[in-house]
Each structure stands twice: as structure tokens, then as C-alpha cells.
């Protein structure tokens, strides 16, 4: 391979190479890092993050940004947990209602996420409010709504606990033995990632999404109903945050109204590190997953080797800026 091809290869696959370099560096420092357990734990911690990032990508690729993601996670975590507590829990949110079938609260919570997404999409498409502002507004509103719900009797702003075992099992259960196991939640994330990949690459909706983000005028004059497409895309994004919130509650065995706080920024960071353009039109599922994993590896790996958590923040920030500065070179026209 000559140097030009090599350069091209590096710039096209920078994200994956960074991920590889990161893992290698940590493994050199402490070879115990390369174990099945670490890999599983990183994937376990990254699973819900991946679902949120994939949701955020729907909006980013249209050229928008969705700040409501984190608060929707909090909302659906609280909603689903409040309906899935064990019968004899002292602070049961709904003491008089019998146990619901597992799917129902989950479905309701995801639908709540879809609803927020629809509202975002409606505000953006109908009133042409910039997505940053529209979702900033819903982000605050959703937190308010969630906090009112969370503060209702008998809960009164106490962390929601006493979740049913069948629910928490979704988040913490796994196939396989103790040492070689595949957590359900990782499978969920993988299935979602596949479905999102299909939407992005194989459906009309996905191609319209890239077109809207790439050149909204082109989409309009080609007869695409831009408003309707935005509405659906924001709704899917909201649904994915909703699902992530449910899984987050199941994984941690509880929920508060502050769940998911600032997750939207992590999701946006993972997306842009993974090559999604904040100006729209560009982004791939493998890239986004690599972006999520880079942060997963940093979080887990740097703690693993005993690095001061404040230093970890500085490294994270540097990676965000460096990755985008590097990635953007692919698209800058050379003069």
C-alpha cells in the first residue's frame, strides 16, 4: 500500500483506529484489561448509551440536535419503574393496582418517549423553530413533568425502588455462565443497532433523512414531505430514548427524576466522535457504535488502571475535540 492509500485508509477509518489504539494502550499498561469480563462490562455499560446515541443520530443527521434525550431517559425510567414495583413494597407508587404484565409499562414508557419526540418534531416542522431551541424547551418541560409525577403521593420524590425481579432481570440478566455471559441488554442494543442500520440504509425514511440533512432544498423540490419525515424521525428518536430509559431503570434497579441528566451531551459526543456531522447529512451506525465504545473504553479502562476521575474528564474532552478536528478533514475541500 503506498502512502497516499494509507493516508486515505487512516482518514476513512480513523474512529476504529482510535478505538483500537485506546484498547492497545490500556492493555499494554495493564494486560489484565484484555479479559472477557472487561469486554462484557464495557458493553454492558455502553448498551443503553448506544441506544440513546442511535436515537440522537436520527436528529443530528437531519441537521438538527435533540437536547431532550437525557430528560426523556429520566422520564421513562421513572414511568416504567413506578408501574413495576413488587406488591409488598412499602412505598409502592400504585398500591391499589395489581401487577401489570411486564410489556405494558414498558410500552407505555416507550410511547411517552415517542410522544415527546412527536412534539419536538411538530415544533420543528410546523413552526420552523430551530431544533436546538425546540428541544431545549421540551428538555426543561419534560424534566418538570417528570418531577411533578415523581413528587406525587405516595412517592414524594423518593428514589423509586423495589422493582420486580422480572423487570430488573431484563437489565442485569444474561445468557451463559458467570464467566462467559452475554447480557440481555447488550443483545437489545445489538438488535436496535441492526434495525437502525436497516432504517438508515435500506428504507425510504433513512434516505430521506440523509437528503434532508444534506440539502433541505433538494429534498423539498424533489417532492419529499420534509415536515412529515422530520416528525417521524424525531418520534423514532424519542422512542429510542424512551427504551433506553426503561433499560437503564432495569439495569440499575431503580429510578429518580434525575436519571439521564446530561446523557444527551454524551450521546451527541459519541455521535460526532463516530463521524456524524453536526451540520447534517452524514453518519453511519458502525461509526456511532465505535463512538459509544470509545467513551465506554475510556470510562472503564481509565478507572481500571486507576486514573484519577478528574483526569478522565480532561481526556474525554480532548478526544471529542481531537476526533472531530481530525474527522472534519475528510470533508474540508483542499485549497
Amino acid at each position: 500500500m503506498d502512502s497516499k492509500k494509507l493516508k486515505h485508509f487512516i482518514s476513512q477509518n480513523a474512529i476504529y483506529l482510535v478505538l483500537l489504539a485506546l484498547v492497545t494502550a490500556i492493555a499494554v499498561y495493564d494486560p489484565r484489561f484484555l479479559s472477557v469480563t472487561t469486554m462484557r462490562d464495557i458493553m454492558l455499560q455502553s448498551a443503553t448509551r448506544a441506544i440513546i446515541a442511535l436515537g440522537a443520530a436520527f436528529v443530528l443527521i437531519t441537521g438538527g440536535v435533540d437536547l431532550s434525550a437525557g430528560r426523556v431517559v429520566g422520564l421513562t425510567a421513572v414511568l416504567s419503574s413506578s408501574m413495576l414495583q413488587v406488591a409488598d413494597y412499602s412505598r409502592r407508587f400504585y398500591p391499589d393496582i395489581p401487577d401489570l404484565p411486564l410489556f405494558l409499562p414498558i410500552l407505555l414508557a416507550v410511547l411517552a418517549g415517542v410522544l415527546v419526540g412527536l412534539i419536538n418534531g411538530f415544533i420543528v416542522a410546523k413552526f420552523s423553530v430551530p431544533p436546538f431551541i425546540a428541544t431545549l424547551g421540551t428538555m426543561v418541560i419534560v424534566y418538570g413533568v417528570n418531577s411533578i409525577y415523581f413528587d406525587m403521593k405516595p412517592n414524594e420524590s423518593q428514589p423509586i425502588g423495589g422493582l420486580r425481579a422480572d423487570f430488573t432481570n431484563l437489565g442485569s440478566g444474561a445468557f451463559g455462565s458467570e464467566s462467559y455471559s452475554l447480557p440481555y441488554i447488550v443483545i437489545f442494543a445489538a438488535v436496535i443497532a441492526f434495525l437502525v442500520w436497516v432504517i438508515f440504509n435500506k428504507t425510504r425514511l433513512g434516505k430521506n433523512m440523509y437528503a434532508i440533512g444534506g440539502n433541505i432544498n433538494a429534498a423539498t423540490v424533489s417532492g419529499i414531505n420534509v415536515g412529515l419525515n422530520l416528525l417521524v424521525l424525531y418520534a423514532i428518536a424519542g422512542g429510542l430514548y424512551g427504551l433506553a430509559g426503561v433499560l437503564e431503570a432495569a439495569r440499575t434497579g431503580g429510578a429518580t427524576n434525575n436519571y439521564g441528566n446530561m446523557y444527551e451531551l454524551d450521546a451527541i459526543a459519541a455521535c460526532v466522535v463516530g463521524g456524524v456531522s453536526t451540520s447534517g447529512g452524514i453518519g453511519t451506525v458502525p461509526g456511532i457504535l465505535a463512538g459509544v465504545l470509545i467513551f465506554g473504553v475510556i470510562n472503564y479502562g481509565l478507572t481500571f488502571i486507576g486514573m484519577n476521575p478528574y483526569w478522565q474528564l480532561i481526556i474525554k474532552g480532548l478526544i471529542i475535540v481531537a476526533a472531530v478536528a481530525f474527522d472534519i478533514r475528510k470533508y474540508l475541500s483542499k485549497k
Binding site: 444534506g214 440539502n215 419529499i224
Partner: peptide, 24 residues
């Protein structure tokens, strides 16, 4: 149909997607 004065391509997508945009 109309060819617009300002060109309207979607730069990061391929030719087929640009041509069949709106009626895949």
C-alpha cells in the same frame, strides 16, 4: 419537472439516490 437555477444536489449521497430522491 424543473431544473432549478440553484443546483440542488445532496452532496454526501450517491447519484442514484439524488436522481430518485422523493420517489425511491
Amino acid at each position: 419537472s424543473m431544473i432549478h437555477q440553484e443546483l440542488h444536489p445532496v452532496p454526501h449521497r450517491n447519484i442514484m439516490e439524488n436522481i430518485w430522491l422523493g420517489r425511491f
